[in-house]
């Protein structure tokens, strides 16, 4: 048997030998595929940033000055360099961004909106997650389904009615009648008009995440906390939430990033893209485009500046998430 195999191996070509080896030792192939996939994803993720950087440090006058792929001379044979390189070097664009517009205020707006939305979402979704995850009551499945159904609505469907309501000109009426209910305050150009719809839109995801996590905390721990002197609510915030730290962190990071990057609602709720109207980062970036000029280099620089805080946040949060998972603290 063994002799036969060696004979076969000797007889076959290199491809066949390679296949044979791969079948006997698939680890190598898996590892190879893993690296191939890694490189692919790294490239597709990082290339846009690189391209932004190239645009940002190219002086404004050179922006439309021809190909970003330089011809290089390889010992007589000319070739095209496969990566774009900046046409010139103008790091001042990163300062210019804050000179031309109060870009830091746009960032502050986005930060404030994202943080307040995250806080609202975490508190309300924690209560909902506690109820859905730990209590048994009639209609629970139906309510969960309701939340799921609402999260399927396209956000655009809410824009017009919400805009009308937040304008505060006419009273809200009972549907299909003209009976007025109340006249809402004018919320346009204020954080209220953005935090409220954001919270509602991003709530379902957090509710689902937290329901799963809170449902896994053993009943005994909650009972122990209650006997020791907390209320149910106290047990939620003192025991269940800390033990679900990975879930809470996940919900928080997802909500924060979603709001930080949000543009659709805020562009409408802020009637003009100005910082004092609570226009967010994307509003600021788009303001570098005027009727006659588009300052791609400043837009690129602004985008990079805007992304940095999120990168830092995710790195920190990821450490927390990983440490929370590896602690394995939930095992009783």
């Amino acid at each position: 048997m063994a002799a036969e195999t060696t004979q076969q191996e000797e007889a076959s070509g290199p491809l066949q030998r390679w296949t044979q080896r791969a079948i006997q030792n698939p680890e190598r192939i898996y590892r190879g595929l893993f690296y191939a996939a890694m490189v692919f994803f790294m490239f597709t993720t990082l290339f846009p940033f690189y391209w932004l950087l190239v645009l940002a440090i190219t002086p404004e006058g050179q922006l439309l000055g021809g190909s970003y792929l330089p011809e290089i001379d390889l010992f007589g044979a000319s070739a095209t360099f496969p990566l774009p390189v900046p046409q010139g070097f103008n790091p001042a664009a990163f300062i210019e961004v804050f000179d031309q517009l109060p870009f830091h205020l746009y960032m502050l707006n986005s930060f404030a909106l994202a943080i307040s939305t995250t806080v609202v979402v975490l508190i309300v979704a924690s209560l909902a997650g506690y109820v859905f995850g730990r209590l048994d009551f009639p209609g629970r499945a139906f309510l969960m389904l309701g939340i799921l159904a609402i999260s399927y609505f396209p956000p655009a469907a809410f824009v017009v009615p919400l805009f009308e309501a937040f304008t505060g000109n006419a009273p809200v009426v009972i549907p299909f009648t003209s009976i007025p209910l109340f006249t809402p305050p004018r919320l346009l150009n204020s954080p209220g008009s953005m935090v409220m719809p954001f919270s509602a839109l991003f709530m379902p995801l957090s509710v689902f995440i937290l329901t799963t996590f809170y449902g896994q905390i053993p009943d005994g721990l909650e009972d122990a906390a209650r006997v020791e002197g907390t209320t149910r609510l106290g047990a939620l915030f003192r025991v269940i939430m800390p033990l679900s730290a990975p879930g809470v962190a996940t919900a928080a990071v997802l909500t924060f990033i979603a709001v930080y990057n949000e543009y659709f609602f805020s562009s409408i709720m802020a009637t003009s893209p100005e910082a004092q109207n609570w226009s967010p980062i994307v509003g600021g970036i788009l303001s570098f485009q005027t009727q006659y000029t588009t300052q791609f280099n400043l837009m690129g620089a602004a985008s990079i500046v805007a992304v940095l805080p999120v990168v830092v946040l995710v790195i920190i949060a990821q450490e927390r998430i990983v440490s929370g998972l590896t602690a394995g603290a939930l095992k009783e």
Partner: peptide, 14 residues
């Protein structure tokens, strides 16, 4: 005014 010891011990792991 009670204190309880649980079967699964139920110490707060954090």
């Amino acid at each position: 005014g009670i204190a309880m010891v649980f079967q699964n011990i139920a110490l707060f792991p954090h």
